[in-house]
């Protein structure tokens, strides 16, 4: 009888599992769906929901290193991303010299 009560208590307490350790990721908490000129943007990252952050987002890095939060799947975002890839390739070719490559990080 005692053993039964004991075991049922143990069984109940087994349902918990994970310890949320402090994870201090830089996250986008909200996004703004408002186009940003591609000329300002030098890099981008994706933020995937569940990997330390609560929402999906695209992080656009400006020439001065500011990180802006925009939606993940918008046409203008895709366009900006394509231009960023072009810019990065160009700057790699010219060894990051020139006005156009201002703020572009070396790969």
């Amino acid at each position: 009888m005692d053993t039964k009560i004991f075991l049922s208590i143990l069984l109940l307490s087994c349902c918990h599992c994970m310890v949320v350790r402090a994870q201090m990721s830089d996250c986008c908490l909200t996004v703004k769906n408002k186009p940003i000129p591609a000329s300002r943007v030098v890099d981008y990252h994706h933020q995937i929901k569940g990997q330390g952050c609560s929402i999906d987002a695209t992080i656009l890095v400006t020439r001065h290193g500011r990180k802006l939060c925009v939606p993940l799947n918008e046409n203008w975002v895709s366009l900006v991303k394509t231009q960023v890839i072009q810019l990065k390739t160009h700057c790699q070719e010219v060894n990051y010299k020139g006005k156009r490559c201002f703020g572009v990080k070396r790969q």
């Binding site: 201090m24 990721s25 830089d26 996250c27 986008c28 908490l29 909200t30 996004v31 703004k32 408002k34 186009p35 940003i36 000129p37 000329s39 300002r40 992080i59 400006t62 020439r63 001065h64 500011r66 990180k67 802006l68 939060c69 925009v70 006005k99 201002f102 703020g103």
Partner: peptide, 28 residues
């Protein structure tokens, strides 16, 4: 808040809306 003069190409001093920039946890 996101827009700027094309001339002010390298000037980042326009009015940012911090709510929509990334939350930097470096201090934490």
């Amino acid at each position: 808040f996101y827009y700027e003069d094309e001339d002010a190409h390298f000037n980042d001093s326009y009015d940012y809306n911090y709510e929509h920039s990334i939350c930097d946890k470096e201090a934490v």
